[in-house]
Simulated assay, not measured.
Amino acid sequence: MGHAEPENELGLLYLQDALARMQGVRELGEAALRQLLPEHWHATLTEGENSVAILVQHLSGNMHSRWEHLLEADGESGSRDRDAEFKDAGLTPEQLWNCWNAGWEVFLGVLTRLQPADLTRSLTIRGEMHTVLEAIQRQVAHYSGHVYQLVFLARHWLGADWQTLSIARGQSREFNRQMEERRRR
């Protein structure tokens, strides 16, 4: 068996990394969502701003629109009502979880199926040409930004009850020690 072409190896590494990073972003968001009380989902810092519910609605709508028919149609599906995503639909936390999961399943499912050769294929998003690689990068930044907004809101609403999703303040040395210990095993 011969060696894979360098660009295929690089493309495969990129796809694997994008998938792993976006799975991590999903897990980060879920760790924040699991901490919310029912009243936190729809709360906003000021009138007219996004709530956690609105962020979930928007992420799911975008994921369905951009990824359900990748390469077959414009990345802005005709059935999408983007403006409605930014109006609180009054969904229950359970309905919002279903919305969240459905969107991520579409997006991550497509990332799982893409092949290195797909990265240079062309597609359109709102009539603008992109390669698949550019579309992935666009969404990695977009989805990460909204998930971090969601984390910020969850942390704000929970206050002192917030359970950190990262290394706790003042615990960096201990974390590094534990990582070194694991590496030695």
Score class of each variant (00 low, 15 high):
residue 106 V to G: 09
residue 177 R to M: 08
residue 1 M to A: 09
residue 163 Q to C: 07
residue 151 V to Q: 08
residue 43 A to G: 03
residue 126 R to P: 05
residue 171 Q to D: 10
residue 155 R to Y: 03
residue 167 I to F: 03
residue 17 D to P: 01
residue 12 L to D: 05
residue 158 L to Y: 02
residue 130 H to K: 14
residue 168 A to E: 14
residue 180 E to I: 13
residue 150 L to I: 02
residue 113 R to H: 05
residue 122 S to W: 12
residue 29 G to P: 07
residue 178 Q to V: 08
residue 79 S to N: 12
residue 168 A to K: 03
residue 115 Q to L: 11
residue 155 R to I: 04
residue 102 A to S: 15
residue 155 R to W: 00
residue 61 G to R: 10
residue 82 R to A: 06
residue 124 T to F: 06
residue 94 E to N: 09
residue 81 D to H: 10
residue 113 R to P: 01
residue 116 P to Q: 12
residue 61 G to M: 06
residue 27 E to V: 07
residue 21 R to A: 07
residue 36 L to R: 01
residue 140 V to R: 12
residue 108 L to Y: 10
residue 106 V to E: 12
residue 113 R to N: 02
residue 58 H to V: 02
residue 78 G to P: 01
residue 92 T to H: 09
residue 147 V to E: 01
residue 44 T to K: 09
residue 37 L to K: 13
residue 76 E to M: 06
residue 103 G to H: 07
residue 53 A to Y: 07
residue 55 L to R: 13
residue 12 L to I: 05
residue 111 L to Y: 04
residue 15 L to V: 08
residue 41 W to E: 00
residue 44 T to C: 04
residue 178 Q to A: 08
residue 6 P to Q: 10
residue 173 R to E: 15
residue 123 L to G: 01
residue 15 L to H: 04
residue 150 L to E: 04
residue 183 R to N: 13
residue 11 G to C: 06
residue 122 S to E: 15
residue 52 V to C: 05
residue 170 G to Q: 03
residue 129 M to Y: 08
residue 140 V to S: 08
residue 11 G to E: 07
residue 40 H to G: 08
residue 157 W to L: 08
residue 26 R to Y: 04
residue 66 R to A: 15
residue 143 Y to G: 03
residue 165 L to K: 00
residue 101 N to T: 15
residue 167 I to K: 00
residue 170 G to Y: 05
residue 83 D to H: 01
residue 54 I to R: 01
residue 12 L to W: 11
residue 40 H to T: 10
residue 179 M to A: 13
residue 15 L to W: 05
residue 139 Q to C: 12
residue 5 E to N: 14
residue 179 M to C: 14
residue 142 H to F: 08
residue 172 S to K: 09
residue 123 L to I: 04
residue 88 D to H: 02
residue 105 E to K: 01
residue 127 G to F: 07
residue 85 E to P: 00
residue 131 T to C: 10
residue 33 L to R: 14
residue 138 R to M: 12
residue 13 L to I: 06
residue 174 E to L: 11
residue 163 Q to S: 10
residue 78 G to I: 01
residue 58 H to N: 05
residue 6 P to T: 11
residue 98 N to L: 14
residue 15 L to G: 03
residue 119 L to H: 07
residue 159 G to H: 02
residue 128 E to L: 12
residue 88 D to S: 04
residue 110 V to I: 15
residue 183 R to F: 13
residue 33 L to E: 05
residue 51 S to Y: 04
residue 154 A to K: 01
residue 23 Q to K: 15
residue 92 T to P: 08
residue 166 S to D: 15
residue 117 A to Q: 15
residue 174 E to I: 00
residue 67 W to M: 12
residue 147 V to G: 04
residue 3 H to Q: 15
residue 34 R to D: 12
residue 26 R to K: 15
residue 136 I to H: 01
residue 46 T to D: 12
residue 36 L to G: 02
residue 110 V to E: 13
residue 89 A to R: 04
residue 26 R to C: 00
residue 138 R to E: 13
residue 89 A to F: 04
residue 59 L to P: 09
residue 136 I to Y: 00
residue 172 S to F: 13
residue 4 A to N: 10
residue 119 L to C: 00
residue 11 G to M: 03
residue 4 A to S: 08
residue 115 Q to H: 11
residue 165 L to Q: 03
residue 73 A to M: 10
residue 60 S to I: 10
residue 54 I to C: 02
residue 154 A to I: 02
residue 132 V to D: 00
residue 130 H to G: 14
residue 3 H to V: 10
residue 48 G to Y: 06
residue 1 M to K: 03
